[in-house]
Design a binder for these strands. Structure first.
Lengths: 180, 180
DNA sequence: GGCGATCGCTAGACGCTCTAGCGTTCCGAC
DNA sequence: GTCGGAACGCTAGAGCGTCTAGCGATCGCC
């Protein structure tokens, strides 16, 4: 494994049912690495940190679904403090990606909205990628899709099952991760 | 192009009223989120940064394959500067996870070795998880494994294909990613 | 033997996160 | 009606990890 993730000669084990499982995991690893790399490229091209981009994507998705987003929502989603969220919003506001507006009913809170610029910028990259991913997924038959889903769910359960001993992490929702 | 599958008048897909492609991507997303969360839990339980843990995993894997690792190797793999790598090694050395030893042939360089403690610590969590993942993968038939691999490779190509306009990110190889 | 390239290191700066604590606003109890 | 705790978003100051710049030591090729 190590070295090159790209040219792993999977696809074909012929009658040799040697270890397709290892090849599957290698493919998963390669995908994961590619995604991480893509994420970094995007981050760098937009001159942003990971959280900034994640916040922007979350915001754009929320707007598509007509959900209002408050700084608190972002803090929970990103699993960072509200203090960090304030600074994050300052950055995104100064760079012209978002705007702050008063919350319609709660005068303590505010709602975050995206500007057209940020929408275009993100859509230009992530949108295209998502379309390609959807294309690939659409090429699966119903049965094949079921296989893939079963596999991915199993993998998810495997990593979810890992509980760390030290136990430093436990509070409420750590789901915040990424994406969505 | 035509990315949006919305217009395709598909049949009905069982209990899940979404199209299988969307469901597949959702599973992929869920896995990704779970893995990110696991990574954070592990990081926190070991009181380490992301790079530290990645470096340690890289080192342990290299040792299993009897490959010597120099600070330069780590810098390239982690895509950080050699300066940052020096500091990283200082951290890991002080915490007792690694040791620095002179390089057998190049007196400018040195080789990084892991201590037994770090091996145990990592194996206690990641090893168990990897075993579970292997289990799940092993439940696939050869044909099913091929389907999953084809899917994952397609996904990898999709994210690899994304090229950012600004072009800030381009240096040498984009390999450095993560994982492995 | 000399000289550019490579290796790993320190110094100083920057960016992003954190905890602590602030004022404002909300909401249920009195 | 008002009073007090809770929730929201903010600023201040510190910590951590990364970066660039530049150092001495060593290598390898001429």
């Amino acid at each position: 494994m190590a070295a090159d993730p790209v040219d792993a000669p999977h696809y074909w084990y012929g009658a040799d049912d040697r270890m397709p499982s290892a090849a599957v995991l290698e493919s998963l690893r390669a995908y994961r690495a590619a995604e991480t790399a893509m994420r970094r490229r995007t981050r760098e091209s937009m001159h942003m940190g990971e959280s900034d981009l994640l916040a922007l994507r979350y915001l754009l998705r929320a707007e598509r679904e007509h959900r209002a987003v408050t700084p608190k929502d972002l803090a929970d989603y990103l699993a960072i403090s509200t203090a960090s969220t304030s600074v994050l919003l300052n950055r995104l506001e100064k760079s012209g990606h978002i705007r702050r507006a008063p919350h319609p009913t709660d005068r303590r809170a505010l709602v975050v909205t995206s500007t057209g610029a940020s929408d275009d910028e993100v859509r230009a990259t992530l949108g295209r990628m998502h379309a390609r991913m959807l294309e690939v997924a659409a090429q699966l038959s119903v049965d094949e899709a079921a296989v893939v889903i079963r596999f991915l769910d199993g993998m998810r359960e495997a990593v979810d099952a890992i509980d760390v001993p030290d136990g430093a992490a436990s509070e409420s929702a750590r789901p915040a991760d990424s994406e969505a």
